[in-house]
Amino acid sequence: MYGSILSHRKFLHLKRALLLTLLMVLMASALSPPQGLSGSTVAGYILGGTALLLILFMVWFGVRKRRIVPGEISLSSWLSSHIYLSIPLATAATLHAGLHLDADLHGLTFALLWLTLLSGVVGLAIYLRIPERINRNREGDSREEMVMQLAEVERACMETAIALPDTVAAAVAHSSHALAVHRSLWRKVVRPEKGCPTVQAIRTIECQSHEGRIDPTLLHNLLTLMNRKLELLRRIRTDVRDHLLLKLWLLIHVPLSMGLIGALTLHVVSVFYFY
């Protein structure tokens, strides 16, 4: 409803970023020496300097976000420019490297830069897709409300299962005592439904139904309830996973950018010290 971060102020930051990119390409082609671009040419120094300034500006976003002070600050404007400035940054750095990658400190800096940029792109994709998905999945309920519904359904399942054979009742009880969400971070994100005791309990109930010794109405009721529980579990797990995804990518992006700053410092110092 309020317009995406990409279209912020009618794509103002995209326009600026493209203009900057164009300027750098033109400058590089005008100043490019016959033996080709590299970091040690005039064009290379200008490109490298620009890329350095861009990186510092983009890293400053992290500080800007956390330093909450009065003033005419629009963080969304900062984020929009943080995203789009990656275009001139990628261009400047690649031209500065002369489309060339060695297995040394300079190559490491270049690789870290691209990894940081790519992790940013992944983050952007997450930011653009996940919020809407969280909302669709929640269907207007909060997580607490979903958990309350789950508890309600579990209670109903137990009440129904108590009248059924012990194997069924035990399977249902086991599924109720199990955690809805895995403890491990990995399982919270990747196939969170793996090893779900509710799925196993449903299988047990279905096996019993084939043997045909139980009241079919009771069994049908229990299966309906168990499937409703499974659906609630799926929604809760999706909710947990999506919320984690919104944060997890930062655990890659931020350390990478810190690493980049370190490598970049060494790169700049070594260039001016040794050459």
Binding site: M1, Y2, G3, S4, I5, H8, K65, I68, P70, G71, E72, I73, S74, L75, S76, W78, L79, Y127, P131
Partner: peptide, 29 residues
């Protein structure tokens, strides 16, 4: 008393938070 207005809006990184008058909100809808 804080320059720039509501901080929740200023410090929302994606522009998702907005403070508006009800008329403006309905018009936007």
């Amino acid at each position: 008393n804080i320059a720039g207005g509501p901080s929740c809006v200023r410090f929302c990184p994606t522009g998702a938070a907005l403070r508006t008058r009800p008329e403006t909100l309905l018009e936007r809808l």
